[in-house]
Amino acid sequence: MSAITDIEIDQLPYRKGVGIVLLNGHDLVFVAQRLDSPEPAWQMPQGGIDKGEEPIAAAWRELYEETGVKSAVLIAETPDWLRYDLPRELVPHIWKGRYRGQKQKWFAFRFTGTDAEININGEHPEFSEWRWADFKKTPDLIVAFKRPLYEQVVSAFGHLVG
């Protein structure tokens, strides 16, 4: 792919997606290590919205695809879309260079099942391992360019945990 200028990047749209905060009964959140990252890159489930799909439907689909979880109840959603920009050097390589980053609607779910239900080895696995973590510390676990987004998510849903 030919070089892309900063002006061209600034004109690119954001990819629409969803993010999922899955809280267990101990107010810990599901995080998983990305398969495609050689360094620590723990994140909460997230993914794109398919054409014609409502954000909440995408959230349920992504939750199941990435974690195997069906035993959950929706407890909150962000009123607004939250955004992150990709580092400029990654733009040509992610999503075929069509997007500058993502705008995401975030949903919080309460997990009502047991850990045995969790399966990160689905049809298209994205994670190598998973664990329960302190929700308010998730910005410290994510790749640096998504940290401001995760800080917004913690601010939006922080009232849900003790």
Rank of each mutant, 00 (worst) to 15 (best):
S2C: 08
A3Y: 07
I4M: 14
D6V: 08
E8V: 01
I9E: 11
I9T: 11
D10Q: 14
P13I: 10
Y14L: 06
R15G: 03
R15V: 01
G17P: 11
V18C: 10
G19M: 09
I20C: 10
L22P: 07
L22Q: 00
N24I: 05
G25Y: 06
L28Q: 15
V29S: 05
F30V: 09
F30P: 04
V31Y: 00
Q33H: 07
R34N: 10
R34T: 10
L35V: 00
S37G: 03
E39H: 07
P40Q: 11
A41L: 01
Q43A: 13
Q43E: 14
Q46I: 02
G48V: 03
I49N: 05
D50C: 10
E54N: 13
E54S: 08
P55Q: 08
I56S: 11
A57C: 06
R61E: 01
E62S: 14
E62Q: 15
Y64Q: 08
E66M: 04
E66K: 13
G68A: 05
K70D: 09
S71W: 02
S71E: 14
L74R: 02
I75G: 06
E77Q: 12
E77L: 09
T78L: 01
P79H: 12
P79Y: 03
P79R: 13
W81C: 00
L82K: 02
P87R: 12
E89T: 10
L90I: 05
V91L: 04
H93Q: 11
I94Q: 13
I94C: 10
I94R: 09
W95A: 13
R98T: 12
K103Y: 00
K103D: 04
K105A: 05
K105T: 00
F107C: 09
R110W: 11
G113S: 04
T114G: 07
A116P: 02
A116W: 00
E117H: 05
N119A: 02
N119Y: 01
I120H: 01
G122R: 01
P125C: 06
F127Y: 15
F127H: 12
W132I: 10
K137D: 01
T138C: 12
T138V: 13
T138M: 07
D140I: 03
L141F: 09
L141S: 01
I142S: 07
F145K: 00
F145I: 06
P148A: 02
P148T: 02
L149S: 06
Q152K: 12
V153E: 09
V153H: 00
V153R: 04
V154Q: 03
V154D: 02
S155G: 10
G158A: 09
G158E: 07
H159Y: 12
H159A: 15
G162W: 05
G162N: 15
